[in-house]
C-alpha cells in the first residue's frame, strides 16, 4: 500500500462523477488521510456511504438479541467471512485488534478476578477461571465487536471527504462537516507530534524516572508552545475561511459529488432496527 507511485488525475469516481481523486499516496500513507481508510474499489467501497452507516444500527441492535454469545457470534463470523471474501480481511483484522484490550479486560475481570460461589472451570493455584464469568465476557466482547466491525467496515471504505459530501448532500450543515474533516485530519498529525515529543524526551533521558506529576509537568512544558500557537492561529484561519466563502448563504456543491441513491434502503435499514430492538429486549 505504501510504495506505489502517487498519481493524481481528473477522473470519474466510483459514484460516476468527475473529479480529482488521489489514487494513491506513496510518501504520505493513507493513514495521513484517516487511520482507518483503505483505498480500494470493492463492492463495499462502491456502496453509498450512508447506506453503510445505516447498516451499523440494525447489526448492532441484533447483536444484543438473546443472552448468550450465539447471536453476536454468528453475526460477527458472517461479517468477518464477508470481509475476507471481499478481500477486505484487513478491516476484520483491524476491528479485532481494536477489540483486544477490551476483550482482555473483560475476560480478566469477569472470568478470573471476580469471586463466584460456583465451582471454577479451571483452577490453577490462586487463579481460577469461572465459566459463567467467561460466558458474560465473551457475550459482551462479541456484542461490542459487532458494533466495532460494522463501523470500521463502513468507515474504512469511504474517503472522509466523500463521507462529508454525502452528509452535506443530505442536508447536514457544511460547517459541521468542516469541523469533522478538520478533526479527522488532526488524528495522524497529533499522534505524530505526540510520538515525536515522547521520543525526544526519552532520548534525552528527561525525567523518565521522575514522579508522575513531574513527568506530566515536563510534558506540558513541551506541549504548551504548540498548543498555544494553534490557538493563536484560530484568528487567521477564521479570516481565511471567511475569504473562502465559509459563511456564504446557499447550497454547497462538491468537486466530487456523491450520486444520490439508496435512500429507500437506508430508511429500511434504520426502520429494521425497531423490530430487532423489540426482539433483543424480549428474547
Amino acid at each position: 500500500m505504501a510504495s506505489r507511485a502517487r498519481r493524481v488525475v481528473p477522473q470519474t469516481d466510483q459514484h460516476g462523477h468527475t473529479g480529482v481523486v488521489e489514487t494513491d499516496t506513496a510518501t504520505w500513507s493513507p493513514a495521513r488521510v484517516a487511520e482507518l481508510y483503505e483505498i480500494g474499489n470493492t463492492w463495499l467501497h462502491r456502496a453509498h456511504p450512508l447506506t453503510k452507516l445505516a447498516a451499523v444500527l440494525p447489526l448492532s441492535v441484533a447483536g444484543f438479541a438473546g443472552d448468550t454469545v450465539l447471536v453476536p457470534a454468528i453475526i460477527l463470523a458472517a461479517a468477518v467471512l464477508t470481509l475476507v471474501v471481499s478481500r477486505l480481511g484487513i478491516i476484520a483484522l483491524k476491528s479485532l485488534r481494536l477489540m483486544a484490550p477490551m476483550t482482555f479486560a473483560l475476560v480478566v475481570i469477569h472470568g478470573i478476578v471476580r469471586p463466584y460461589d460456583s465451582e471454577p472451570l479451571v483452577a490453577w493455584g490462586p487463579i481460577s477461571v469461572n465459566a459463567g464469568g467467561l460466558a458474560l465476557a465473551g457475550t459482551t466482547a462479541a456484542r461490542i465487536a459487532v458494533f466495532v466491525i460494522a463501523v470500521t467496515a463502513a468507515m474504512a471504505t469511504v474517503h472522509p471527504k466523500i463521507f462529508a459530501t454525502a452528509l452535506i448532500q443530505r442536508g447536514v450543515s457544511h460547517k459541521l462537516a468542516y469541523a469533522y474533516l478538520a478533526g479527522a485530519e488532526l488524528i495522524p498529525e497529533m499522534r505524530l507530534r505526540a510520538t515525536q515529543i515522547l521520543e525526544a524526551q526519552q532520548s534525552r533521558g528527561f525525567d523518565t524516572k521522575g514522579s508522575l506529576p513531574r513527568r506530566l509537568r515536563t510534558l506540558f512544558a513541551l506541549l504548551k508552545p504548540l498548543l498555544v500557537s494553534s490557538l493563536i492561529g484560530v484568528e487567521m484561519r477564521t479570516l481565511a475561511l471567511e475569504s473562502r466563502g465559509f459563511s456564504l448563504p446557499g447550497r454547497r456543491t462538491a468537486a466530487v459529488a456523491v450520486r444520490e441513491r439508496g435512500r429507500l434502503l437506508q430508511r429500511s435499514l434504520l426502520l429494521a432496527s425497531i423490530p430487532l430492538l423489540v426482539l433483543a429486549v424480549i428474547w
Partner: peptide
C-alpha cells in the same frame, strides 16, 4: 472522529 476513523468504541 475517533470513533469513525480510529476506534468505534
Amino acid at each position: 472522529v475517533i470513533g469513525l476513523t480510529l476506534e468505534a468504541t
